[in-house]
Design a binder for these strands. Structure first.
Length: 422
RNA sequence: GGAGAGGUGGUCGAGUGGUCGAAGGCGCAGCAUUGGAAAUGCUGUGAGCGUUUAUUCGCUCCGUGGGUUCAAAUCCCAUCCUCUCCUCCA
């Protein structure tokens, strides 16, 4: 949610920022509604003040045995007028929110220009793309021949874009989850195991709704949605709260399965683990003071990178350009892992600073001392990192000529003595 | 799923139609007291919006949403959540 005050005072700034996103919003119409609303509130408040003043005198008048009939008659009229004003204000509020909730975040000025993901800027690399002295296989072929990935049976049980992991495949997925959680908790992230369903307010709070309802799975006969990311339940833990400034930054990590309808992605990445309706992810979430949020973003990216470094997976970090920047982000970096089957880097983590965009929607504030005025926190989050894509990357980057997979050293304690999957 | 009780400020808790944003306790902050501290005393202590900037005045908020009334924390309806008992169950 953008700041309506910023819209009032510097509309041209907002328009220019949104223009970078190629978003055209009827700011003028919005401001007209805002002006009208404020006029109505001003009128209503005057009448309410009158109503309150008269009401205050009534007990005394009654005590004195005065006749209040004529006063009540007038007050009845006043009451009806107030109601009319309140109704109008409510109507305008609904209209304004319809617009406000669909306006994307103001991008940070540092976000580079560009139209698509091809215009993202590479910031750094870890290792070089894996070289093979044989023809490497894709993870879906490896998974099939090893008997550890089984999309066909998943399709039989559920449908397309689901996977069954079997045997050491399931074990590997679980090992990665545990390794990630252990690593992040050792760095001060508090581990959270949240619900995998959330209600509508939470989805609105973090920005998935109302604009992207077709991307979410709604649970029939309820108002619940399957979580598209742990960001939603974890960020909303503090909805409508004023946090203690001394306790910031709050750092959380959480494993959840993630559910995405993948609307508009039909036919893309149909093979393997890359684009599924359900996938596992460990998410990192921070609540920070505004002045520290970009340092916290950098630190969060470093924490996400650390697990890939420990696994010895080649990756690069890219700074996301304006055309590829998500709806809610002010600034975003992706971590992309080397995927031999794609012969390119593939996103495995997305790390964003939302500044106060989510905090405004979810009403999350902080103050340093009791006397201070509460102000919005900044929220930062990123995958730390996606599990399914990690599994895919391990299968592909650590494959041997005979089709076996060498398990990365760091995962051995989690693999029950299996150092090779064959 | 059935029966009942309840949701009030950071917290506990009073308040069943009017002068209630709301007693009191705890907590917290400031001041006094002290060599320092404890204890004690005094004062203060929610959020948002508008206005003013003299820390002014006004409005809204007692789970949420509607209603009744001149007037609602208080009455009515719906809804969510919590607790107790029963039923069912991993």
């Amino acid at each position: 949610m953008i700041d309506i005050k910023l819209l009032r005072t510097e509309p041209e700034k907002v328009i220019a920022a949104l223009a970078r996103r190629k978003e055209i919003v009827d700011i003028e119409g919005l401001l007209k509604l805002d002006t009208k609303k404020r006029e109505l509130i001003y009128e209503a408040e005057g009448k309410k003040a009158e109503q309150n003043a008269v009401s205050k005198q009534i007990p005394q008048l009654k005590k004195d045995g005065k006749d209040t009939t004529s006063i009540f008659e007038e007050m009845k009229k006043l009451s009806a007028e107030i109601k009319k004003y309140d109704d109008e204000v409510r109507e305008i509020d609904v209209k304004m929110n319809e617009i406000l909730y669909t306006i994307p975040n103001i991008p940070n000025a540092e976000v580079p220009d560009g139209d698509t993901d091809e215009d993202n800027i590479e910031v750094r690399r870890f290792m070089e793309p894996t070289k093979f002295d044989f023809e490497p296989l894709a993870h879906w072929d490896l998974g099939k021949s090893l008997g550890i990935l089984d999309p066909e049976t998943a399709a039989k049980v559920t449908g397309a874009r689901f996977h069954i992991y079997s045997g050491l495949g399931a074990r590997l997925e679980r090992a990665i989850i545990n390794f990630y959680l252990d690593t992040h908790t050792s760095k001060g992230y508090r581990e959270i195991f949240p619900p995998f369903m959330v209600h509508r307010d939470s989805m609105v709070g973090t920005g998935q709704l109302p604009k992207f309802e077709e991307d979410a799975f709604k649970v029939a006969n309820t108002d619940y949605f399957l979580v598209p990311t742990a960001e939603v339940p974890v960020t909303n833990m503090h909805r409508d709260e004023i946090l203690d400034g001394d306790k910031l930054p709050l750092k959380y990590c959480a494993y959840t399965a993630c559910f995405r309808a993948e609307a508009g992605s039909a036919g893309r990445d149909t093979r393997g683990l890359i684009r599924q309706h359900q996938f596992n992810k460990v998410e990192l979430v921070k609540f920070s003071k505004p002045e520290n949020s970009y340092a916290e973003l950098d630190a969060l990216i470093a924490d996400a990178e650390a697990v890939l470094q420990a696994l010895k997976l080649p990756y690069r970090v890219v700074k996301i350009c304006i055309g590829d920047l998500g709806f809610t982000a002010a600034m975003k970096y992706d971590i992309e892992v080397w995927m031999p089957s794609y012969n390119r880097y593939v996103e495995i983590s997305s790390c964003s600073n939302f500044e106060d965009f989510q905090a405004r929607r979810a009403n999350i504030k902080y103050k340093n001392s009791p006397k201070e005025k509460a102000q919005f926190v900044h929220t930062i989050n990123g995958s730390g990192v996606a599990i399914g894509r990690t599994t895919a990357a391990i299968l592909e980057n650590f494959q041997n000529e005979d089709g076996s997979i060498t398990v990365p050293d760091i995962l051995l304690p989690y693999m029950g003595g299996n150092d090779v999957i064959r």
